[in-house]
Amino acid sequence: MLKSPVLPRDLPLFSDDLDLLSGVLDDVCRDRGLARDTPAAEVIGALLIQLYRQGVRDKGKLAALARAYL
């Protein structure tokens, strides 16, 4: 039997999680004049997922951290 711990990064993202992250990504991309299908938007999306899995669940905080990253 495998006895490794379940880490937050291993948990699935559900529809509500993805809706929140997608909305934040839309806001940040709009503010920065980025299209969602650009490499920069993909990097921001990956960052948002990483932050979310680390416990940042507030939409405003996620957006602020993503904007600071740019």
Results as ranks from 00 to 15, higher is better:
A35V: 06
S22W: 03
D19E: 13
P39Q: 15
A66I: 00
G33Y: 06
I44H: 03
D19F: 15
M1Q: 07
D26L: 00
M1C: 11
A40H: 05
T38S: 10
A63I: 00
L20E: 01
K61D: 05
R67S: 04
C29K: 10
D16E: 11
Y69L: 07
D19V: 13
D27H: 05
L7I: 14
R67P: 01
D17F: 09
R30L: 09
K3Y: 07
A63D: 00
V24E: 02
D31K: 14
R30I: 14
G55H: 15
L11E: 13
L11I: 08
D31Q: 08
Q50G: 08
R32P: 13
A64K: 02
V28F: 00
L7P: 06
L18G: 13
S4F: 11
L20F: 05
T38G: 04
G55T: 03
D26W: 00
A46S: 13
D16W: 12
V24R: 00
D19C: 05
L65Q: 07
D17W: 11
M1E: 07
A46D: 13
I49T: 12
R53I: 03
K59V: 02
D16M: 10
L2R: 09
D19W: 15
L65A: 09
V6P: 06
L48R: 02
S15W: 10
R9N: 07
R53Q: 02
L18C: 07
L62R: 00
L18E: 12
T38D: 05
L51A: 03
D26N: 01
D17E: 06
A35T: 11
A64H: 05
R32M: 14
R9A: 15
L47C: 01
G33N: 15
G33M: 06
K3R: 09
D31S: 14
D37K: 06
E42C: 14
C29R: 07
K61A: 15
L48W: 05
V28Y: 03
I49M: 10
K3A: 06
D58L: 07
V56A: 08
S15R: 12
G55W: 06
Q50E: 12
G23I: 05
